[in-house]
């Protein structure tokens, strides 16, 4: 009977002793989590205050970050949004440090790998985010300026600039993530070079007549038939 009881109690004792050894790790994890979250909140508070002090919101308005956020239905201020992003990044880091405190080999391995890859993933995300905003800002600026200059193919020009910049940014992000870097580099070179050669050929060959007309017009002198505007707008 005792043997039978030992058979039942031994695993239970083993579980209990393992649990006893595990409890300090669990408590350590919880302590790390609580401390990490408090620190993250504190850092968020300091960051948001500093961003407000340096007029980050006005700068974001000018650069188009605010407009981009509004498009994505985010109505908080840019400083508050950046503060929230940093807060949650710190919470994720804290969670990983906390999990590693549990000293479970499988989790340790996973956390280690995540830590190695995290800086790359983070910088790729930053490149994509900033790249997307800058691409939109530049192509929109080109569009508006070209229209106001009376350029007929303004939208085409702006779209071409947007695509070229997006290709460049995607290549940069993938290079950062180390996803087949040599293939990405080769593909980027081929695509970018191809676009430039296509444009050069199409403008070079297709524009011969236009260029001739322009040269002839210059040589003949400027026509004075067109009336100039003398309006004072202000």
């Amino acid at each position: 009977m005792m043997d039978f009881l030992n058979l039942i109690l031994e695993p239970l004792q083993e579980v209990f002793s393992k649990f006893k050894a595990f409890v300090p790790n669990l408590l350590a994890m919880l302590a790390i989590l609580v401390l990490g979250i408090v620190l993250a909140r504190l850092l968020k508070f300091i960051l948001v205050k500093s961003l407000i002090a340096i007029n980050f919101d006005s700068w974001s308005d000018r650069m188009g970050f605010t407009a981009l956020m509004r498009k994505g239905d985010i109505w908080a201020k840019p400083s508050a949004t950046l503060g929230a992003i940093i807060f949650w990044l710190l919470v994720i880091v804290t969670l990983m440090i906390g999990l590693s405190a549990l000293k479970i080999p499988a989790i340790d391995n996973l956390v280690e790998q995540a830590f190695i890859y995290m800086p790359r993933a983070f910088s790729a995300a930053v490149i994509l985010m900033i790249g997307y905003v800058l691409t939109g800002f530049i192509s929109q600026g080109v569009l508006v300026a070209a229209v106001n200059s009376g350029y007929h193919y303004a939208k085409l020009l702006a779209d071409a600039i947007r695509i070229l910049l997006m290709v460049l940014i995607l290549a940069m992000a993938m290079e950062q993530l180390q996803i087949a870097p040599s293939i990405v580099l080769a593909a980027f070179t081929i695509i970018f070079g191809g676009i430039v050669i296509t444009l050069a050929i199409s403008f070079g060959v297709g524009g011969i007549d236009a260029a001739r007309r322009m040269i002839e017009k210059e040589a003949a002198g400027k026509p004075d038939a067109e009336t100039k505007d003398d309006i004072e707008h202000l």
Partner: peptide, 24 residues
């Protein structure tokens, strides 16, 4: 003083805007 204006050119600019700035 007399003020010269070229309304045809102004209206062309308006139509260019209409063709290109639709989304905005």
């Amino acid at each position: 003083e007399h003020v010269n204006v070229n309304t045809a050119r102004m209206l062309n600019l308006f139509r260019e805007g209409l063709a290109n700035l639709r989304d905005i």
